[in-house]
Amino acid sequence: MTWGVTDLTVTYGAVTALRSVTVSVHPGSIVAVVGGDGAGKTTLLRALAGAVRPASGSVNGPTLSHLGFMPTTAGVWRELTVDQNIDFVGASQGVSGVVLAARREELLEAAGLAAARDRAAGALSGGMRQKLAFSLAMLHRPPLLILDEPSTGVDPVSRVDLWRLISTAAAQGAAVIMATTYLDEAERASRVVVLDAGEVLLAGTPAEVLENMPGHVSVVPAPSDRKRAWRRGRTWREWSPADPPAGTPRVADLEDAVVGAALAKAAVHA
């Protein structure tokens, strides 16, 4: 079953939070939704979860019992211990008995939380807490996992560990969609959707996004137009609306592709 949204527009009063967004999430794959604060990432995820009413367009999401949702904050009960968190979510999702016992051991082991099972979730490090929240969202083995910035504020080492858990879920067949502000993380996903002010700026596999961005980005010793240029370390990058010379890639990586596409959008609106 493929989940997703088609031509989705969501408004909050006079504000258009999402405009004509189409995204699909296939089993066994990870879709990364990228964008800054206010780009519409959370609205998209909430709409897919059925928690937001679309102004237009359609949503194809599973019923709640087939959905795992990990919100930006919370996701764990801080006053409860790790074990009690698992008990609570197990009870609310109808997972019990030998199944719960087996999954408890499996997830504690996989998340590296076996030694912390009696600690209050609020006393865990940020990375451990996010791994617990992910494990709780996974407890009933939902076919669709919706993760809202699971790695924001998590240090790079814990982020690698979290990605390992997310990878495992996808390898076992789950459809995963996650919001992230880390482009290196998005580069490892099966597909990337870049949101900007509620609109899709770029979308596709990471390779497609690099191939389909408008114009090209080159490394230059000194920029000819500062408005189209930015620094990367001690070198300059400059976006041009023209196609690159034959045989030259449009862009080196996702970071440059997103900055270039944002400049292209600004140029159109200028």
């Binding site: 964008g35 800054g36 604060d37 780009a39 924001t152 504020g153 502000t181 482009l183 900007d196 930015w230 620094r231 970071e255 997103v258 900055v259 944002a262 400049l263």
Partner: peptide
């Protein structure tokens, strides 16, 4: 932390 890539490029 938390800003879009173009804003990040401008801050840098």
């Amino acid at each position: 932390s938390g800003v879009d890539p173009l804003s990040r490029a401008r801050l840098w």
